[in-house]
């Protein structure tokens, strides 16, 4: 393989990256650029190739073809000075068995040749100071996720990869982790992360890439992505007020169906439909939901799910 240094200023630059395992084409010509200081989301169904992508970027695997540049360097073969600048949190929480949170972090700090205060800093960064003396196996799901994040951040990396950092968190824990992530971005770090929570990607990411079957379907800011896909607006009316037959013929209505006690109408011309509906029901009974990143995501990955 050759390595690109065409964009040394970018945090990550992938060009036409392909990787095959036996008969499975994990990555099929992926091209992506993540700018420095960017909060970049990678969204995609399970098996889309997200994990392989991260493994290639950190230099654990080499692509079959294509070029990879990370912070202006080639990650392959194992590039220790480069790895020192990357913080990587994988889905499996890698903790030293039967140690306390602090002991675990002190061990990781020593592996990075850092002094003990690095462990305290990392604990404070993720707000885990109170659990410092607790054994890793006794931490709650949210606390483990924070400890995993602290592990990835202990050496003060410039470029951070997080693989579903908020999976298995309750809503409150999720929100407080968002704050940690926003602080990291505020410090000028680059964050690349994968998630299944599309509301989260919409709230946090500067740009997102939607990946399926080893290819990038779209890369853009969440707002542009939603707009460019022209996903329909959904209007909801209580089903006892109106039936599918009542609205099907109205101008601007693209589809209508009853879901969970509500009539859901899809349209690209919400104003026109609202006017027409106003003739039939009280406008206060209608709720409007504009398109979200989730709609964009579902639309883009529709073929993937059908097959």
């Amino acid at each position: 393989m050759s390595t690109s240094d065409s964009r040394p200023d970018a945090a990550v630059a992938l060009n036409e990256v392909r990787k095959r395992y036996g008969t499975v084409q994990a990555l099929d010509g992926v091209s992506l650029t993540v700018e420095r200081g960017e909060f970049f989301g990678i969204l995609g169904p399970n098996g889309a190739g997200k994990t392989t992508l991260v493994e290639i970027v950190e230099g654990l695997r080499t692509p079959d073809s294509g070029t990879v540049s990370v912070l202006g360097e080639s990650p392959w073969p194992r590039n220790t000075p480069l790895l020192r600048r990357l913080g990587i949190q994988t889905q499996s929480s890698a903790f030293f068995t039967r140690l306390t949170a602090r002991e675990h972090l002190e061990t990781v700090a020593a592996l990075y040749r850092l002094e003990r205060p690095a462990a305290t800093r990392a604990l404070d960064l993720v707000d885990l100071g109170e659990q410092a003396g607790q054994r890793v196996d006794q931490l709650s799901g949210g606390q483990r996720q924070r400890l995993a994040l602290a592990t990835a951040l202990i050496h003060d990396p410039e470029l951070i990869f997080l693989d579903e950092p908020t999976a298995a968190l309750d809503p409150a824990a999720r929100r407080s982790l968002w704050e940690v992530l926003r602080t990291l971005k505020g410090d000028g770090r680059t964050i690349v992360y994968t998630t299944h929570h599309l509301d989260e990607a919409e709230a946090l990411c500067d740009r997102v890439a939607i990946v399926a079957r080893g290819t990038v379907l779209a890369v853009d800011s969440p707002r542009h992505l939603i707009k460019s896909l022209a996903a329909p607006t959904r209007l909801r009316v209580p089903a006892y007020r109106l039936g599918v037959e009542d609205v099907r013929g109205l101008p601007g209505v693209e589809s209508a169906a009853v879901e969970g006690g509500e009539l859901v109408i899809s349209t690209h011309t919400a104003n026109q439909v609202l006017l027409a509906l106003g003739e039939l029901v009280d406008l206060e009974e209608i709720t409007t939901r504009t398109a979200t990143l989730e709609d964009a995501y579902l639309e883009l990955t529709a073929t993937e799910r059908r097959s």
């Binding site: 790895l83 990587i88 890698a94 990781v108 990075y112």
Partner: peptide, 9 residues
């Protein structure tokens, strides 16, 4: 092991 792999140790 992967964590160790990423460190200079």
């Amino acid at each position: 092991l992967r964590l160790i792999w990423r460190t200079p140790t």
